Amino acid sequence: MAGQRAIFLMTAILAMVAGAGRPSPALAQAANFHPCNAQPALPICQHGYGRRVAAMRWGAPREALDPDAAVKAPLITRDPAGEIGKLRSTTIFVEDMDRAEVLFARDADVVRPIASIVKLMTALVVVDARLPMDEMITIDASDVGVPSELPSRLAAGARLSRVDLLHLALASSENSAAHALGRTYPGGMTAFVEAMNARATVLGMNDSRFVEPIGLSNENVSSARDLARLVHAASRQPLIGEFTTDARYSVDGRTFHNTNMLVGRPRWDILASKTGTTREAGDCLVMMVRLGGRNLAMVLLNAQGMSGSRFGDAVRLRRVLDSRMAAN
């Protein structure tokens, strides 16, 4: 009996060691279980992004949504200063791009990782190249094998047109689609990355550097001021503006949804947008919006707090900006 108990204990210890990086399946099946509540020291649980990945992977309940990100959140305020105090993004920048007037700035020149905001530059390079949009591209193992914690929804061997891949990369931030666009660029991925950095230079994005078209690498960096230039340029390309503001898109028998929960809402005139999320970059959002007859670039980086805080911050900023415009 003692020998069996020793074997059992050793087996349990080995199982714990093997599963040290993830919650156990048994725990994941418990009522109201959230892996990061049970094991908060797990690396995956150190950021809101990791908590959401854990929720998706183990079927845990979703995080509570930032109330200001909700559909019925009010868009007016009598307390602009209070709204500013509630902003949860560490880096914020709002500029009227027609007047070159900065309306709000917080750490606008800090250079930091930008996650999938990179895909706006990916799209600009693809559109600039004037490649045949109806060309069929086969997704291969390198496209679906990018080191993301979120699985690709495209399978190796799937054939999609270049325009479909661009649509998926922008609206639903499909990593495999963005990788395939870079891989099939004339000259391959190296030439594609060179084109990304060359385009950044033309736009005057002096704080920016790109190393791949997806946004998973922390070496893709920029500042909020640079990203305002990027989203403005993207909004002037009709195809990019259309795809980034498409609430949902169906291709190959599947429906993909926009990662920006503000897209499609009434009273929001969004001209272009892109989200980005990694543990290091945090939750990010860039948009060109039409507000009070003005074309505004809105950049929110590294939002902290509850799920949807970047969208809540966009609502809070809109309240502040609306109140200022009404006072003028």
Rank of each mutant, 00 (worst) to 15 (best):
M56E: 14
V286D: 00
G145F: 10
T201P: 00
G215Q: 05
D79T: 09
L166E: 01
A200M: 05
V163S: 13
A30C: 05
A247V: 12
R57K: 14
G215D: 04
M97D: 02
A247I: 11
A15L: 15
L239I: 15
P151I: 09
E149Y: 02
R88N: 14
A198Y: 08
A64M: 11
V211A: 01
T190H: 09
A28P: 03
L154Y: 10
H47F: 10
M288F: 06
V146M: 14
A64D: 13
K274E: 08
A105K: 14
E95M: 14
L181N: 01
Y185H: 13
V102E: 06
G157E: 09
R290N: 14
F93Y: 15
L227W: 02
A2H: 08
I92A: 05
F104I: 13
E83R: 11
K86I: 01
D68M: 10
I240R: 00
D107S: 15
I214G: 00
V127M: 15
A64S: 12
M298A: 08
M16R: 09
K119W: 12
V118S: 12
N175H: 10
T255N: 08
G215S: 09
Q39T: 12
G305Q: 05
V299D: 00
A281K: 02
Q4G: 05
G187M: 08
S172N: 13
I114D: 00
F256V: 08
Q237Y: 04
R265F: 05
M189F: 08
S223F: 02
P74G: 11
M16Q: 07
P266F: 03
A41D: 15
D96M: 11
M261K: 12
V110C: 00
A41T: 14
P80F: 04
Y249N: 01
V315F: 01
T245L: 05
D226E: 09
L131Q: 08
A6S: 12
T201M: 10
T138C: 08
K119F: 12
S148W: 07
D322S: 15
Q4W: 12
L300V: 14
A73K: 04
L131R: 03
R57E: 11
P61H: 08
F33Y: 15
P61F: 06
N197K: 11
M288C: 04
S161I: 06
A247D: 06
P266M: 01
R99V: 07
R130W: 10
A303F: 07
V320T: 03
Q29D: 07
N295L: 11
A281T: 06
A180M: 04
D322V: 13
V251A: 14
G85D: 10
R324I: 07
R106Q: 15
N302H: 14
G82N: 06
S217Y: 03
R106T: 09
F33V: 10
I214T: 13
N206Q: 13
Q4P: 00
A233S: 10
G204H: 10
A129N: 09
V53Q: 08
N328Y: 07
L181A: 04
S223H: 02
M325C: 03
T277W: 15
D109E: 14
S250V: 12
M10F: 14
R22P: 00
L168M: 12
W58E: 00
K274A: 09
G48K: 01
T122P: 02
L120K: 05
M16A: 15
V111C: 02
G82I: 11
L75V: 09
